[in-house]
């Protein structure tokens, strides 16, 4: 059981990470991503863990014995897996992005009870810059760059069959990452390579606003956007920032944006925990919680409303952490190591 220990700041909200179980995947290669998905089969319905290695994706179910058993594995011999694309609210279906340096394919993974085989149909191909699963079984992606860029929302059925494709008006800059807006189902945000925030109307495909943020960090990533009282609160990270001390190198930043006037301001920086040096490597934001793997090998968790680090997971004897993901239930944090070890922590 680990928590932030800071005797000076007793008034801070402290969280707790309690390890509940572990699983070992990808014995032969490096763990590239992980996540959770509700899975319904003939004999069980359960929250399962998904692990991705370069050449395979596996679905794991927690057994009564306390161990994790492999339910299905999808193999990829031609193009390596880059990431799992979470699909909010979707059951029994996993989405993965494959490619070399950039994403070249997006595939859905499922099990067909008709013929008893796992399937991996192709959803999209091309030079894909960014992809995000949206609520109500939609997937947004951007292909190409600059003037040739195509931004598209794909609607799909419960079984993963594509139903409709809607084009969004492309911005003049290449999209780096998309983010949904909490509380506004029909709004979509993206951050571009020139650190512009772009706002779309998902229903009409209109490009509503382009707001230059003027950051000195190239290649920032937007994770999450909250809408409140006419303002947008955007959570950003800077994976390519130079390593320096924690005061000037926050893990996450929150920027407030007035979409009506296209003016923005920095609102809050989430600093590294006391005594921890380095910088943000990768992470995920879910609900009001942000988790990040730091170059020091730690995983740190922040409460976005309080703006404070609430828990810290030091590297264990087996090695440093390389991945941090929230489960779809919000209450669990998955901590992964390159050798394929996945540790499941309950976060309170």
């Amino acid at each position: 059981k680990v928590a932030v220990e800071d005797p000076v700041e007793d008034s801070q909200r402290k969280g707790s990470l309690q390890m509940t179980s572990t699983l070992k995947s990808c014995s032969a290669s490096c763990l590239v991503d992980m996540g959770t998905v509700w899975w319904e089969a003939a004999d069980f319905t359960a929250l399962c863990v998904v692990t991705a290695c370069e050449a395979s994706v596996s679905l794991w179910r927690h057994l009564e014995s306390g161990h994790w058993g492999s339910v299905h594995t999808w193999h990829f011999t031609k193009v390596p897996v880059i990431q799992i694309v979470p699909l909010p609210g979707v059951q029994s279906l996993v989405c993965v992005a494959l490619g070399g340096l950039e994403i070249s394919e997006i595939r859905f993974l499922f099990y067909s009870s008709e013929d008893g085989c796992v399937k991996q149909p192709l959803v999209k191909t091309g030079n894909i810059n960014a992809v995000l699963g949206l609520k109500n079984r939609r997937l947004v992606s951007s292909c190409g760059s600059l003037q040739d860029q195509e931004v598209e929302v794909l609607s799909f059925s419960e079984t993963g069959r594509s139903k409709e494709r809607q084009a969004l008006m492309p911005p003049e800059e290449t999209v780096l990452a998309f983010a949904e807006v909490d509380g506004m189902q029909e709004a979509l945000i993206a951050l571009t390579t020139t650190d512009c925030l772009v706002v779309w109307n998902l229903t009409t495909g209109q490009l509503l606003r382009k707001v230059p943020l003027g950051f000195s960090y190239p290649g920032s990533v937007c994770h999450k956007v909250y809408s409140d009282s006419g303002l947008l609160f955007v959570v950003l990270s800077h994976p390519h920032a130079k390593e320096s001390n924690s005061c000037v190198n926050p893990a996450f930043q929150v920027v407030v944006l007035n979409p009506k006037t296209a003016r923005s301001a920095r609102l809050m920086s989430l600093s590294l925990p006391l005594g921890i040096t380095g910088r943000y490597l990768e992470g995920e934001v879910k609900g009001a919680s942000a988790a990040a793997v730091l170059t020091s090998g730690n995983i740190a968790v922040w409460d976005l409303f309080w703006g404070q680090c609430t828990a810290l997971l030091p590297p264990d004897s087996e090695g440093s952490w390389s991945l941090a993901r929230w489960s779809v239930t919000d209450t669990c944090l998955l901590a992964g190591q390159k050798d394929g070890s996945v540790y499941i922590y309950s976060y309170t």
């Binding site: 008006m169 209109q206 509503l208 006419g230 303002l231 007035n258 009506k260 006037t261 301001a265």
Partner: peptide, 23 residues
């Protein structure tokens, strides 16, 4: 942040921008 930093705030910004933006 005061309203002067960010300019006048509109609760209905999404509808207003959607009515102004080209289709």
């Amino acid at each position: 942040h005061s309203e002067s930093d960010l300019g006048p705030i509109s609760i209905n910004w999404f509808e207003e921008l959607s009515s102004e933006a080209p289709l």
